[in-house]
Each structure stands twice: as C-alpha cells, then as structure tokens.
C-alpha cells in the first residue's frame, strides 16, 4: 500500500485546520504524527480515513484518489479519538458486531485479538462498565483484528499502563513486519521514536519537520565517535 498526500488543506468555518500538508507513506513502515493538542493530527487522520473532505489537495491510496475513486481506504483499521462502542454489549459482542459487516474473521480470531491486549473474551462485563484503559484496549483490538493493510491510531497509548504500552508496541512492530502501513499520533516523542521509522511533526496545521529517529540516532552515534 502507498499513500500520497499532496498539498492537503482543510478549512472549517474560516479556521485553517490543515495547511498544505504533503506526505508519502508506504507499507511495512510505522509513521508517527507528533504535535500538540489542536495541531491537526486528528483531522489529518480523518482525512486519510475518508471521513473528511479536504478543502484543497488530494489523497491517493494505491493510485486511487480518495473521495473520488474510493470513499475509504479499502482495508483499514482506525482508532480516532475516543473509542466508541455499544455500552450494553460486552467487549467481545462489540467486536463481533463490527466484524459481521465484512465477515473475514471468525470468533477465535476476535478472541485472540482481545487476549493479546489482556482482555478476556468470555468476560460478560458490559462495555459501559469498562475502565478507560480497557476501553482503549478494545479500540486498539478493533483496529488490527482483521489484519488490515492500513492501521491508524490516534493517541493509542492514552490511559494505558507501561506493560500495556509495551504490548501495543510489540503488536505494531509485528504488524509492520507483516506489511501493514501504520500511522500513529502521540504527544510523547519518546514513545514515537522507539517504534516509528519516520515522524512527521505538525504544528498549527502545518508540517514543520520530518525526521527518521533511527537515522538521527545513528548520526548522533557517528558524531560522538568522531569526537
């Protein structure tokens, strides 16, 4: 999968949310979006999902223009802002309902996705009784349970403890090896730098910097050895 974003802008009621963003992303890599609250990270993710029409610019996914040739990326798992599920259903029931629209996986795979994140598939507790961390984990499980080609995660580490964050990072690295294109946003640049191949820094809707954490650390090592 290849995503190309050309001069993407989004204006809502005269407020510029995104301003001439251009990116290229490919399969088998993890990309990070770094920026403060209100910098435009979530809006960018919504644009890539096809949930929001750009005011200007284009998004191409595998040589198909989004919002013209296709409505949404054809294989996507997304966690945008707070996860939202049906309060009166259990976690497993929620995921099963979601999986029923495009039945590509069975109950065992749904259960496996939940177990990887420390959730119990047989737990009858209703979603409304879940803690914030459990809700977040269920949202993450929903994004990768069908092994999509594109995984978008907006602040996935919110409300998670260190152990759970480590589990999520392992899963993302595994999905990367399987060829998924992963884009995640985070406030904490350290979390991003641990797993991302490339990080886009967004400020006030503009892309101000792009860097590769691995190359930066190699450069720093080379500089240190040189001195």
């Amino acid at each position: 999968m290849k995503i190309e974003i050309h001069n993407l802008s989004k204006v809502i009621r005269k407020a510029t949310i995104l301003d001439q963003i251009s990116l290229v992303m490919e399969s088998g890599k993890i990309y990070g979006l770094q920026g403060r609250n209100g910098s435009g990270k979530t809006m960018l993710m919504r644009c890539i999902c096809g949930l929001v029409y750009p005011t200007e610019g284009e998004i191409w996914i595998d040589e198909k223009k989004l919002n013209q040739d296709i409505s949404f990326p054809q294989s996507i798992g997304a966690l945008i802002e707070n996860p939202g599920f049906i309060g009166s259903y259990s976690g497993f029931q929620n995921l099963k309902l979601l999986a029923s629209i495009n039945p590509t996986i069975d109950d065992a795979q749904i259960a496996s996705s939940m177990e990887r994140l420390g959730l119990i598939p047989d737990d009858r507790k209703k979603y409304r009784k879940y803690s914030l961390g459990m809700k977040q984990k269920l949202g993450i499980a929903a994004t990768f349970m069908e092994n999509p080609d594109l995984i978008l995660l907006d602040e996935p580490f919110n409300a998670l403890d260190e152990k759970s964050i480590a589990v999520v990072k392992d899963i993302l690295l595994e999905k990367k090896k399987q060829g998924a294109l992963i884009l995640l946003s985070c406030h904490d640049h350290e979390d991003l730098e641990q797993i991302c191949d490339e990080i886009f820094v967004i400020q006030d809707g503009k892309q101000i910097r792009t860097y590769s954490p691995l190359k930066e650390s190699e450069r720093s090592k080379t500089n240190e050895e040189g001195t």
Binding site: C49, G50, L51, I70, S71, F72, Q74, I76, A78, I80, P83, G84, F85, I86, N94, L97, L98, I101, N102, A142
Partner: peptide, 13 residues
C-alpha cells in the same frame, strides 16, 4: 461511536 467504525467497514458511503 461504533457507527463510524461500521461506516469505514462498509467501504463506500
């Protein structure tokens, strides 16, 4: 909530 996720799953608006 889950409605947006189902929208993405439907592949076409």
């Amino acid at each position: 909530g889950i409605g947006l996720l189902t929208l993405l799953q439907s592949k076409k608006r």
